[in-house]
């Protein structure tokens, strides 16, 4: 049988929803014998915009960038450990820029065939400028997108999910 997805990307942003998405992606990658990459984008675009508008001073830009870089490393390491628990080597990518644009670029350049994201927030505004980053990704991804909802169920399933047992190629 030809598996439909061989290269999976999960988007992490430090939210509980994105960690749940990573758990679901690990289980799915093991089931499909696919590769899994986790990506965290430090939103330096927003930081630069805030400095340009003088909402932030330069020292604030540097301080917040350091904070978020630290979060990125922490969450990527956490997902790598989750993968190890289930016998999967998760590749991790930390990058920076405009979040949805960077994710879309990575999807295109690396022939990713499935993007996994955490739950979308409810539709609160019809204004384009108020779309969340995950909303933007959902709309701009050049590949199928899996939206993971219901954190509790995913966490329960992850607990009992078997480790990888990959077939010989």
């Amino acid at each position: 049988m030809v598996e439909p997805f061989k290269e999976i990307l999960v988007y992490l942003d430090g939210s509980e929803d994105s960690v749940s998405a990573a758990m679901a992606a690990i289980m799915l990658a093991n089931r499909l014998e696919a590769s899994l990459t986790a990506i965290y984008v430090v939103n330096t675009r927003a930081l630069r915009d805030l400095v340009s508008a003088r909402i932030f001073l330069e020292f604030e830009e540097q301080e917040y960038q350091r904070d978020i870089e630290g979060d990125a490393i922490r969450y990527l390491n956490h997902v790598k450990e989750l993968g190890q628990q289930k016998g999967l080597d998760v590749k991790t990518i930390k990058t920076s820029g405009a979040v949805s644009a960077e994710v879309t670029k990575y999807l295109q350049e690396n022939n990713i065939d499935l993007l996994v994201i955490g739950g979308l927030s409810e539709i609160r505004s019809r204004r384009d400028e108020l779309l969340s980053e995950t909303d933007r990704m959902l709309r701009s991804a050049p590949c199928p997108v899996l939206v993971v909802r219901d954190n509790d169920e995913i966490w329960d399933k992850f607990e009992i999910a078997p480790s990888a047992t990959r077939s010989e190629k």
């Binding site: 942003d13 430090g14 939103n43 927003a46 930081l47 915009d49 805030l50 508008a53 909402i55 932030f56 917040y64 904070d67 978020i68 979060d71 204004r127 400028e129 108020l130 969340s132 980053e133």
Partner: peptide, 17 residues
């Protein structure tokens, strides 16, 4: 909550632009 803080500030800047 640095990430959310930045996102909220940036969205206010965009909305009022």
């Amino acid at each position: 909550e640095s990430r959310s803080y930045i996102e909220v500030l940036a969205s206010i800047a965009r909305a009022t632009n």
